[in-house]
């Protein structure tokens, strides 16, 4: 147990501003990602305390505004906000006036009128958080997943988890981003409909990793023009070459079931089966954003192997989201302190 008082501020003072909103990983850039990871490391330490709570955002109010079902992301954000002592409001479409016909814009303006400092938005339409950011007058907007577009905090926590595992198992620097240089990341599955994939590709490539995609053609985006990726010719070979395998779920609720002839065929050709695990290097790490569908993209026994770090991803989600909230709302992105933030941003290009 730490001797430190539980309400001491985290060790990290922000070095880089990360902008006003977090809508896309592209908003952060390499420096911004590095900063989130660095601050998250400090908050991970807070989480290990007996009373894992700091007063950093006392007096701030954040709202989770979810127009789509979610368990882990919402709980993770709310836990993060509470550990920072922020007040947390929870707005779900199922118990709201949206069902009575209220528009997204009116909903957002109503919530903001309650003095909310940050809106954590999940929406089935790509780009909805961008629009919310245009409509919000003072609140920060965090994209908690929009349509097929992005899920920035998921990608950040994936990177965070990968670095943590590399540090523990192979002695990589747990603070810097050097471990990502030349790291071979393989994304497998429904890239087309995956917001996690779009954010991961931006994050991993910004950090210096090389990204390869493996999927049936129907589950790749129609165009990869301008994407810093390559498409694997052969899945088995790509697995053997990968340092990190990011498995994506078949998004049946977005109709991806129609994109493959059958789940059985998908599993046979693109699933991480027991046979394919044997192809992986012994250093490989398997990530999965959840929810996992055992028997489809991953076989049940593989999901339980130590190389699969899905549970750790969930744990780290809280620290990473604390970092994002802190950087947007705390001293780093203080609502009254726009000028210093801009100076910081200018200083870091």
């Amino acid at each position: 147990m730490s001797a430190e008082p539980a309400d001491a501020p985290p060790a990290a003072e922000p070095r880089v501003g990360i902008g006003r909103h977090l809508l896309s990983v592209a908003d952060l850039g390499r420096e911004g990602i590095a900063e989130v990871l660095r601050v998250a490391e400090a908050f991970a330490e807070v989480e290990r305390r007996a009373i894992p709570k700091v007063p950093t955002l006392r007096g701030r109010a954040v709202a989770t505004v979810f127009f789509e079902e979610s368990t882990r992301t919402r709980l993770s954000f709310e836990t993060a906000a509470k550990r920072l002592s922020a007040d947390v409001l929870s707005f779900g479409v199922s118990n709201s006036s949206v069902k009575k016909g209220e528009s997204l814009r009116d909903t957002v303006e109503t919530i903001e009128a309650m003095g909310i400092d940050a809106l954590i938005v999940r929406h089935p339409s790509s780009g909805a958080p961008h629009q919310v950011a245009r409509w919000a007058e003072r609140a920060r907007v965090i994209n908690a997943g929009d349509g097929w577009h992005e899920h920035p905090t998921q990608a950040l926590l994936d990177c965070f988890t990968v670095r943590q595992v590399l540090a523990e198992r192979f002695g990589a620097d747990p603070e810097g981003i050097g471990c990502f240089d030349g790291l071979r990341v393989l994304l497998v599955g429904d890239i087309r409909h995956s917001r996690v994939a779009r954010s991961e590709i931006l994050a991993y490539s910004a950090l210096g990793a090389t990204v390869t995609l493996a999927a049936p053609r129907t589950l790749l985006p129609p165009s990869l023009e301008g994407w810093p990726v390559r498409v694997a010719d052969d899945f088995d070979t790509a697995l053997a070459e990968a340092d990190v395998v990011s498995l994506l779920r078949l998004q049946a609720e977005r109709g991806s079931g129609e994109f493959v002839p059958s789940l059985r065929e998908y599993t046979t050709h693109w699933g991480l089966t027991t046979r394919r695990v044997g192809l992986l290097s012994e250093r490989a790490i398997v990530t999965h954003p959840g929810p996992m569908v055992r028997g489809v993209e991953i076989s049940g026994d593989v999901a339980d192997l130590p190389l699969t770090v899905a549970t750790r991803q969930v744990t780290n989600g809280v620290a990473v989201r604390m970092a994002v909230l802190f950087l947007l709302l705390g001293a780093g992105g203080g609502l009254e302190a726009d000028a210093p933030v801009e100076e910081l941003q200018a200083a870091h290009g």
């Binding site: 577009h149 917001r195 985006p221 129609p222 023009e225 994407w227």
Partner: peptide, 14 residues
């Protein structure tokens, strides 16, 4: 449907 729709995650019309 093209480079922009793919990047933006918006379903495209080919």
């Amino acid at each position: 449907e093209g480079a922009w729709s793919s990047r933006l995650g918006i379903p495209g019309v080919p």
